[in-house]
Design a binder for these strands. Sequence first.
DNA 1: CGATTTTGTGAAACCGCCTATACTGGAAAC
DNA 2: GTTTCCAGTATAGGCGGTTTCACAAAATCG
Lengths: 332, 332
Amino acid sequence: MDILQVAKRARVSSATVSRVLNGSNLVRPATTERVRRAIAELNYVRNPNARSLRLGRTRLFGLIVSDIKNPFFPELIDAFEGMAAEQGIDVIFTHTNYDTTRLRSCIRRMVERGVEGIAIMTSEMDEEALHQVPVRGIATVLLNQPALRGKYRNVAVEYSEGFLEALKHLQSLGHREIGFIAGPSTFSSALRRRESWETAMKQLRLPIRPGRVVVGDMRVEGGANAMKGILAGGNRPTAVLATNDLMAIGALHAAVSAGIRIPKEMSLCGFDDLPVCGMVVPQLTTIQLPRYEIAAHAFEALLQAVRGEKQTPCAAVYPRLVIRKSTGPVAK
Amino acid sequence: MDILQVAKRARVSSATVSRVLNGSNLVRPATTERVRRAIAELNYVRNPNARSLRLGRTRLFGLIVSDIKNPFFPELIDAFEGMAAEQGIDVIFTHTNYDTTRLRSCIRRMVERGVEGIAIMTSEMDEEALHQVPVRGIATVLLNQPALRGKYRNVAVEYSEGFLEALKHLQSLGHREIGFIAGPSTFSSALRRRESWETAMKQLRLPIRPGRVVVGDMRVEGGANAMKGILAGGNRPTAVLATNDLMAIGALHAAVSAGIRIPKEMSLCGFDDLPVCGMVVPQLTTIQLPRYEIAAHAFEALLQAVRGEKQTPCAAVYPRLVIRKSTGPVAK
DNA sequence: CGATTTTGTGAAACCGCCTATACTGGAAAC
DNA sequence: GTTTCCAGTATAGGCGGTTTCACAAAATCG
């Protein structure tokens, strides 16, 4: 079922069929029509391998995420894939499970598959694994890896902005004693969020007291435990921020179990804005990570690189506060 | 950077390099070693297009889902992609947004890309769109499309089993007056769930009363409205099942807002077992759809087909009840 | 009406890899 | 010492497209 069959049926040469297929304007309308009909009649589909081989372009992007089950990623994938579809680009997709070794093999698979660009939207990173990529002229874009800025395209998340906005919101409600549920410092993103929180606290002259920062495991459980820790300590804060929504939800459970009413007796704010934030009671105030924007920037960067356009400088996205029901005026 | 460069450097012919690459055993070890070194030195990666073109095999599967943002799908994708990676198969991924037109173009893109198998895990379906696939000998597996059984491989979900188990559970708690929040009948999966519920109700001799079945839009909002409808009617049921978890959660919100305590005054049961079920208060009892199993069956079916093995008969998965905190003994 | 330009089409050369077939040199058999 | 055989390697063709270039047919012009 190749181009030659079509050519024969339309009584033209394969070259003409190819021209019709590619919308060349130097084929007579009548001929075009004949070819079109032959294509339809034979139900012909062109072979992308032959095409890519000849053209040296695959129109294929790779997308690597850490963990698709983490609700942060689906929206990102959704947006990325949608934009790709619009451009006639297919996306091959893999996930690493936060495993650097798997990241390596993912990258390798993509390179072997001949992708023209790779978006590595993982929280873990391995500079070694990246080395093989740029050598082959494959465009690469990373998520929030400022350390590698300059070498690779990067979509930066300006966490501080988000925390600043959230803290201002709490401050305006009268809160001054604010706790923080951090993540393990082995997660680069957790670490960065924690630093950004501290920066924002200092900027607003809010006190960071010992025992007010508790570490959780980034999951619901961990958030619950962290909140128990906070409640156990004396001098309870009037508001608590969490590194991510899952921990905020855990904290919510723990607080409710302890008989603390949210937001009446304590305000709570998460980070990420997962869909679940609107489903818990009370609905969770949170700092929204603009996932669509991240995907859009990443895709745009790859597209520019592939097209050989000049690269716009490193993109940044700004988290935004989403006020729901879990924050309120400080109890008198 | 082709095989010839490598051949030149290793002072052999391209044929020998190819043999080394493909693990042929008729190359002398010393030669193999020379070629290996040349490959490493040149950092050579073979061109998958040329390879696929020659071999007629792409080692590429397509995966189509309705909506990756629906938490039902990520786990499925995760499992599918994981199994594919183990087999050295890449996965190209698209989503339809429940749009039949998009399904068509998705399938088309996959066919053009030359996938060897397509898993169409969507809730919408269009038999027309499928026609082009088997013609090209591309393996296809559908999710829960009994109408097309026989023509295509199919992973069937035996909804009735799940409903039966849930209803027995409720029955054992003393419930007899059980309501149902259905989905729009335009969704084939919603329709099938509703029918299965009715079947199970009849089987257990439970009464299906008018006004007890309310339709929602499959989202949280719709569930809340449906519950309001149920509460507005007289003769309130003591337990309510929902077609999916999101609507069950909406129903939960509505019930709580109306001052009804769950599960003390009313039991509630969802369907799907999304991660969010464990995060709401009270945690939601639900019927679990075994997503990993679905993915596994689908992948296995494609793999068998591609390998030309004889097809095992149509696979089926059985939902299972997960009892949490939203169901309890009927109020006296 | 012949010369020149434009326009449409075909032949053939690739793209990088695999592999059937042909060939080589040396070991084994005679 | 020749023949036979075989492991190891090279040559060449083809997978299905695209594209350059050459050429024929039609259109334009003097």
